[in-house]
């Protein structure tokens, strides 16, 4: 490693690596370790007991299902948005493009209150949905909507540059080989954007699992139904059960880590396939 690095043109191998490791340790690794340690300190028995409590397990499912649905919706919605923003010209395009990043900037609680207001049975959209006997606020759908709102920029911003850089000659080559638009999308364009879609999915999913502020206002927070894991952690904290809170946090940490690792492996798999590495 050292040998290769010294042959590189870009200077600052040692300095760069030192700053990286120090920063990463201070900001990421040490807090996570302390979390793990304090979780383990409470003892194996109570730890297992806390994290397998039926109400907590139900909250895992709500969080995971919600995050998965939201990420999936965002993959489709994000792809369409990225497509439109890349290939079509229309008035207000720049404004829409800028608007898309707003969910990142907005305090999540503000988003939650706005969404709850909009989707409650008295809100505009809530009234509209009520005509079809749909209840959104204070149900699982509400959770998904809040998660979609908060994470929508991820997929768009992952896919957009890939689409913009897509060489048009690929599509023209497919055309001259007799392919119809549908096939061109499936065989030529989709494989190119798949890694970006997976990355966007992963980010949206991970962010959704951790999301708290925007969800609690719209979720209704009924135990076993619409209670998300971050909320159960809050409850433990409010009851001064710090050990319990860290135990559940450890589980969430594990979920997220496993998931992000899987996403990265998938991305590597596609990259290696293209480069012909096994």
């Amino acid at each position: 490693m050292e040998q290769r690095a010294t042959n590189r043109l870009i200077p600052g191998y040692r300095l760069g690596l030192s700053i990286t490791l120090t920063g990463l340790s201070l900001i990421v690794v040490i807090p996570f370790c302390s979390l793990l340690i304090s979780g383990i300190q409470m003892g194996w028995q109570p730890f297992i007991h806390t994290i397998t409590d039926s109400r907590v397990v139900a909250s895992y499912l709500v969080s995971l299902k919600g995050a998965f649905s939201a990420a999936l919706i965002n993959v489709i919605l994000g792809l369409v948005l990225a497509w439109v923003l890349t290939f079509y010209e229309f008035p207000g395009k720049k404004l829409l493009d800028a608007l898309l990043d707003l969910p990142f900037a907005l305090p999540t609680a503000v988003a939650g209150i706005a969404l709850a207001f909009l989707f409650s049975t008295k809100g505009w959209l809530g009234q509209f949905a009520a005509q079809f006997n749909l209840k959104i606020a204070y149900t699982f759908s509400g959770i998904v909507i809040a998660m979609v709102f908060v994470t929508i920029p991820f997929v768009v911003r992952e896919v957009q540059p890939v689409l913009a850089q897509l060489d048009e000659t690929y599509q023209e080559a497919a055309l001259t080989l007799g392919a119809k638009p549908n096939l061109i999308f499936r065989k030529v364009i989709f494989p190119e954007i798949l890694p970006a879609l997976i990355a966007g999915f992963g980010l949206a999913f991970a962010r959704s699992i951790g999301e708290y502020g925007s969800i609690i206002f719209i979720a209704g927070n009924q135990p076993f139904k619409t209670e998300i894991t971050p909320l159960t952690i809050m409850f433990k904290l409010e009851a001064h059960d710090y050990n319990g809170a860290t135990a559940i946090a450890c589980v969430m940490l594990l979920f997220s880590f496993v998931f992000i690792y899987v996403i990265h492996s998938l991305q590597r798999h596609f990259e290696n396939k293209r480069l012909g590495k096994k």
């Binding site: 000659t169 023209e172 080559a173 596609f270």
Partner: peptide
């Protein structure tokens, strides 16, 4: 095509 446009995947 000049850049060959072979499908990378």
């Amino acid at each position: 095509f000049q850049n060959y446009a072979l499908f990378r995947y």
